[in-house]
């Protein structure tokens, strides 16, 4: 088992004829993902590396039976692309694009929550179930099928955690990049509920960062609802207040959203917090020992 995506997931790429869309469509297919087509308005009827290109997501779904999409369209058109995917009944929508205006995401967020679709991102590396399905930009080879679920607001820091858990031979069940924006489609809590139910997942690693209160909310949820071992790391202990640290969502504003507050909330919920990014996998091992 795994969550959200597996070897049966049929994936299209919105923006398949753009540079990034083309590059990563090939990357995902090479990994073994069932890429079944793509969408670029105005280019319907063409083919990309043998995959059919459609004008609309609706057509793509009807023709290919796609149930997941990977979105690479430019930021000004991303909200529209997500809404189109929701409308077409796509089950898992993965928006990789960075730079989507926040007001657009307010609209999209409400539409997603009112639908049966799951949105991952935007501004995220994507989702991967190692050995089965990769939807996104992460380097596939560092992953290994296994028992640790990883969810994170950061891209490369996730790779770091994946690498560490692979080196310890733990492997990963499913890894999800939530995205670095203030509003993202899927929260830590949404995933915690799924990982708790997933047979393959034996422990959960959560990688947060400064800004917002998603980690505090997740801590409260873990305390009430999660029996599996949970470890965490929070980036940005040394970040100054009021400065956006790369990600639009990584900002301490009005004294709120500091790493110190988040670490305290996580520890109070019994979560093992790694002291440095080099110790993320060690923290998972500790959390597993603590529970056994």
């Amino acid at each position: 088992m795994s969550i959200l995506v597996d070897r049966n997931t049929r994936v299209i790429c919105q923006g398949i004829t753009g540079n990034a869309g083309a590059f990563h469509t090939r990357g995902c297919r090479d990994y073994g993902t069932q890429m079944v087509g793509g969408v670029t308005p105005g280019k319907g009827g063409q083919a990309f590396d043998g995959l059919p290109v459609f004008d609309t997501v609706e057509e793509a779904v009807a023709q290919t039976g796609a149930d997941a999409t990977m979105i690479f369209v430019p930021a000004p058109f991303t909200a529209d692309a997500i809404l189109e995917a929701i409308d077409a009944g796509i089950r898992v929508i993965c928006a990789i694009t960075e730079g989507v205006p926040v007001i657009d995401m307010v609209r999209v967020y409400r539409a997603v929550k009112a639908s049966g679709s799951v949105l991952i991102g935007p501004n995220c590396p994507g989702i991967i179930t190692p050995g089965q399905c990769k939807i996104g930009i992460m380097p596939g080879y560092i992953h290994q099928p296994g028992k640790i679920a990883i969810m994170s607001r950061s891209g490369t820091l996730t790779y770091e955690a994946v690498w560490q858990t692979s080196n310890l031979g733990l492997g990963q069940s499913t890894c999800v990049g939530l995205g670095g924006d203030p509003i993202v489609g899927t929260s830590f809590i949404d995933l915690l509920a799924r990982f708790q139910e997933d047979d393959q997942t034996e422990a959960i690693l959560m990688i947060g960062e400064i800004g917002g209160s998603a980690e505090e909310e997740a801590a409260a949820f873990v305390k009430e609802n999660v029996t599996k071992p949970v470890a965490a790391f929070i980036a940005g202990r040394t970040a100054p207040p009021g400065k956006r640290m790369g990600h639009a969502g990584a900002i301490i504003s009005g004294g709120k959203g500091t790493a110190t507050e988040k670490v305290a909330a996580l520890e109070a919920a019994g979560i093992t917090v790694a002291p440095t990014p080099a110790k993320m996998a060690d923290a998972v091992v500790q959390a597993m020992q603590k529970k056994s």
Binding site: T156, L157, R237, H247, A250, A259, P277
Partner: peptide, 27 residues
């Protein structure tokens, strides 16, 4: 990467140093 950049600042501090900047060169 922004998260790794923040985490790098953190680990410098953890080992007794002080970062002079945050810099993410991007993907």
């Amino acid at each position: 990467g922004a998260g790794l950049a923040m985490a790098t600042m953190d680990i410098i501090k953890y080992h007794g140093g002080q970062p002079s900047n945050f810099l993410d060169v991007g993907g």
